[in-house]
């Protein structure tokens, strides 16, 4: 029995080693205009096609735009940045008569208490493919000045549309984000993805983004108008179903997550005392240095 297991492990190791020893070669030359096959192009080659760049690939650095990045911001600055950023974004779309709705983690935050999740590094919104084209043709690279309601905060945002928006399928996976709403002070952004009916002939009524999130027309439309971070925003028709499909049931019931605990009285996600203590100690250590 045991010998059998060893033998199997040995044999499979032998077979696997041949894969390591024979790297995949890239013989096929890419033709101009041809779709890039993700299996053929190497990581570096694919990276060349990427439009949006981040200072790093990890969870923290992956949420800044490389052009405006000056260093990781504190939780407080991120909260403040995101609060004004989404308000400015929703206001701009409203003023322009353009449709957009909140999605993914941002939608989950809305579901809990109409606010963003405090641990979320970025925010997500969606638009239809047609709106995306319209944005690309009319508002690409536009800058938007913002003043908060009380006049105390002034910000500037860049609406940057990915030139790869013509491609509505995943492609090489390097341009799945269609547009960004960037805070030019620190590089934090809102990810904007377009949804299109990618196969209207075989799969009518199924909307898809480039990262293969799929939605049925009847789950998305007609949209509902609600309040997010204090301003009017839209959410999909069957918001509960969309959230459960993406995050599973636990996302709607678990009250402890990412060092935060749901306060049932205040209806807020609060940092756990342990986390506050941990952060205080870390700050002290850095102060001593």
């Amino acid at each position: 029995m045991r010998f059998g297991a060893y033998a199997t492990a040995f044999i499979s190791a032998c077979m696997f080693s041949s894969c390591i020893a024979t790297p995949v070669t890239n013989d096929g030359k890419l033709e101009l205009g041809a779709r890039i096959d993700p299996k053929v192009a190497s990581r570096q080659e694919r990276q060349k096609n990427k439009y949006f760049h981040e200072p790093g690939g990890n969870l923290e650095l992956g949420h800044y735009d490389a052009r405006y990045f000056h260093g990781i911001v504190s939780d407080e600055e991120r909260t403040d940045t995101q609060f004004h950023m989404i308000r400015a974004y929703l206001q701009f779309f409203r003023d322009q008569g353009l449709d957009t709705w909140i999605a993914h983690g941002t939608l989950l935050g809305w579901w809990w208490n109409g606010k963003r999740l405090p641990w979320d590094f970025d925010m997500d919104t969606q638009v239809s493919g047609a709106t995306l084209q319209y944005l690309g043709e009319n508002h690409n690279q536009s800058r938007h000045k913002y003043t908060s309601e009380d006049g105390s905060v002034k910000r500037e945002y860049l609406l940057d549309v990915n030139p790869w928006i013509w491609e509505r399928t995943r492609g090489d996976g390097m341009n799945i984000i269609d547009a960004r709403w960037v805070d030019v002070r620190n590089g934090l952004f809102i990810d904007i993805t377009g949804l299109s009916e990618t196969h209207p002939d075989t799969k009518p009524g199924v909307w898809s983004c480039k990262n293969y999130h799929r939605y049925k027309t009847s789950e998305l439309f007609p949209m509902r108008e609600t309040i997010f971070e204090g301003v009017l925003a839209k959410v999909p028709y069957a918001y509960d179903k969309i959230l459960i499909d993406e995050y599973k049931e636990k996302a709607l019931v678990v009250t402890e997550f990412e060092n935060h605990k749901w306060d049932m009285e205040k209806k807020e996600w609060l940092k756990t005392p342990e986390q506050i203590e941990k952060e205080r100690k870390k700050a002290e250590e850095q102060g001593q240095r």
Binding site: W111, G114, T226, Y239
Partner: peptide, 11 residues
């Protein structure tokens, strides 16, 4: 962990 502690969405 049970459903029902979130703030009701306002429309």
């Amino acid at each position: 962990a049970a459903y029902g502690t979130s703030l009701r969405p306002v429309f």
